[in-house]
Computed example of a mutant assay.
Amino acid sequence: MKWKPAIIRRIEQRTPTVRSFWLEMPDRASLDFRPGQFLTLELPVSERRRDGWRSYSIAAAPDGSNQAELCIVRLPDGKGTSYLFEGADVGTELLAKEPGGVFTLPEGPLTKNVVMICTGTGVAPFRAMLQERLGRESVHFHLIFGCRTAEDILYREEFAALARQYANFTYSVALSRSDVLAEDGIDFHRGYVHPVYERDYAAVRPDVCFYLCGWSEMVDEAKRRLLALGYAPEQVIAELYG
């Protein structure tokens, strides 16, 4: 697949360690993709081109423009994110492949309730999915988001507003290093994400599908726990971040 030009058009600091980067694909009028897919960038961090390839989930649904929002966390020892946070700026031109990936919701009306379990920037594909599907589906969506402290909550106001607006959406936040807060639209918990879904879905149901996204340790643990509860493997769908 050919590499195409991608120009950074906007940068926004989301949390102390996370930024959103809006990339424009100037070779087309609109960027077509399915929510849940990712963009692979080529970053100038090595003499070997392949060593600079990094994939990031698209964090917003298609809007008819030729831009995509990527939600990226700066890694302490990450050459790619060090470049994006220190060497790149608005106007920087990169190379990107066409959107790819199969971590997407089924096409057509959904028949099973959707439980989205994630940590950190693993929330990005779920935000895109919710933007596109929440208002037109009759099934229930439950987003369970884990992070360390309240200042690390990505898209906090947006998801809380959705929970107030839609009766078929529940928004739970697990804070591992912060006290539980009180806020309309958010179901707060102290600790990690695992006790949240184990509490709410302890009784095995055939009408639910779990989508997991984030670092491999969390995803592997969630998959193990859900299967131990008695859920079928086809009810647990995962996207790993490393």
Rank of each mutant, 00 (worst) to 15 (best):
K4Q: 13
I7M: 09
T15S: 02
V18K: 02
V18A: 10
V18S: 05
S20C: 10
F21E: 03
W22I: 14
W22Q: 10
W22A: 10
D27G: 09
L39K: 03
L41W: 00
V45A: 05
R50P: 00
R50E: 15
R50V: 14
W53D: 14
W53N: 09
R54Q: 03
I58P: 00
I58H: 04
A60C: 10
A61R: 09
D63G: 13
D63Y: 05
S65K: 02
N66G: 14
L70R: 02
C71K: 05
L75V: 15
T81E: 06
F85I: 15
A88R: 05
E98P: 01
V102E: 15
F103I: 07
P106V: 08
P106S: 13
E107W: 13
G108R: 13
L110S: 04
L110I: 06
V115E: 12
G120F: 09
T121V: 07
G122N: 01
P125D: 06
F126I: 04
R127W: 02
R127V: 03
M129L: 07
L130D: 07
L130I: 12
E132S: 08
G135C: 05
G135L: 02
R136A: 13
E137L: 08
E137I: 14
H140A: 12
L143V: 11
A150T: 06
E151H: 05
E151C: 13
E151N: 14
D152R: 06
L154S: 04
E157M: 05
E157I: 03
E158N: 10
F159S: 02
A160F: 03
Y166W: 10
Y166V: 01
A167K: 12
N168S: 13
S172Q: 13
V173E: 06
V173D: 00
A174C: 11
S178T: 00
V180R: 09
L181H: 15
E183N: 08
I186R: 02
D187C: 11
F188P: 03
H189L: 10
R190N: 11
P195W: 05
P195C: 00
P195T: 08
D200P: 00
D200C: 07
V204W: 04
V208C: 08
F210R: 00
G214H: 05
G214Q: 01
M218Y: 04
V219Y: 02
A222G: 03
K223T: 12
K223C: 06
R225G: 03
L227H: 04
G230L: 05
G230D: 13
P233Q: 09
P233T: 06
E234N: 15
E234C: 08
V236Q: 06
A238K: 07
E239C: 08
L240I: 13
L240D: 07
